[in-house]
Simulated assay, not measured.
Amino acid sequence: MIIRIMGEGQYRAPEALCDELNEIDNRIVALVTEGKNDEFRTELARLISEIKAKGEAVETEEIMESDIIVPPEDLSLEEARDIFKGSGIFED
């Protein structure tokens, strides 16, 4: 799976990582729904950190379509309400 972090590039993510990211994504959906801004920001930072740490960066010369687009870490709670809803950005 190819994941783009807005403003930071693309990463290849193995299936095991995608399962872990989906769990974080589900927590983010719940936190956004509950309006818990600080906790939401912590989990979004964790999501991005896990992608960078465990994914494989795609070279900038390589042009690939992204399967998932992760918003930047400075996303507001209001903006997140439009993105992190239902099953989130990672489909179950």
Rank of each mutant, 00 (worst) to 15 (best):
V29K: 03
V32R: 03
E62F: 03
E56W: 05
A80V: 05
R46W: 13
P14W: 00
P71N: 02
I63A: 01
D92E: 12
G9A: 08
T42M: 12
E59P: 00
A57Y: 06
D67N: 14
I5N: 01
E61T: 13
K85E: 06
L17Q: 09
G86A: 06
V70W: 05
E59K: 05
G55I: 12
I28D: 02
I28V: 07
R81S: 02
S66C: 13
T42L: 13
I69W: 01
E91S: 12
V58C: 03
F40I: 11
I83Q: 09
T60Y: 06
I89T: 06
E56V: 14
I68W: 12
P71W: 05
A45V: 14
F40C: 04
N22S: 07
N22G: 01
E62T: 14
G55T: 09
T60S: 09
S49H: 10
R4P: 03
S49W: 07
Q10P: 06
E39L: 15
T60Q: 11
E78M: 09
E20G: 02
E79G: 00
K54Q: 15
G9S: 09
L17W: 12
I2G: 06
D19R: 14
I3L: 14
F90L: 05
E91Y: 09
I2N: 10
K85D: 03
I28K: 02
A16G: 00
R12Q: 12
V32D: 04
P71I: 11
R81E: 04
M64Y: 08
M6C: 00
D38F: 03
P72H: 04
M1A: 12
T60P: 01
T33R: 11
E50Q: 13
E62D: 10
R41F: 00
T60L: 07
M6S: 09
E59L: 04
V70C: 06
R41K: 14
N26W: 02
D25V: 07
V32G: 00
G86F: 11
G86S: 09
K85Y: 07
E73M: 11
G88K: 01
G9D: 10
I68N: 07
I83A: 05
I5A: 03
A13K: 08
D82W: 06
E73F: 01
C18N: 14
L44R: 06
E61Q: 10
L77M: 08
E78S: 12
R46D: 13
M1C: 04
E73V: 15
I63G: 00
E8D: 13
S66W: 08
E15S: 08
L77D: 05
I89G: 03
E15M: 06
A30D: 12
A45I: 14
A45W: 10
D38Q: 09
L77P: 05
R4G: 04
D19K: 15
G9C: 11
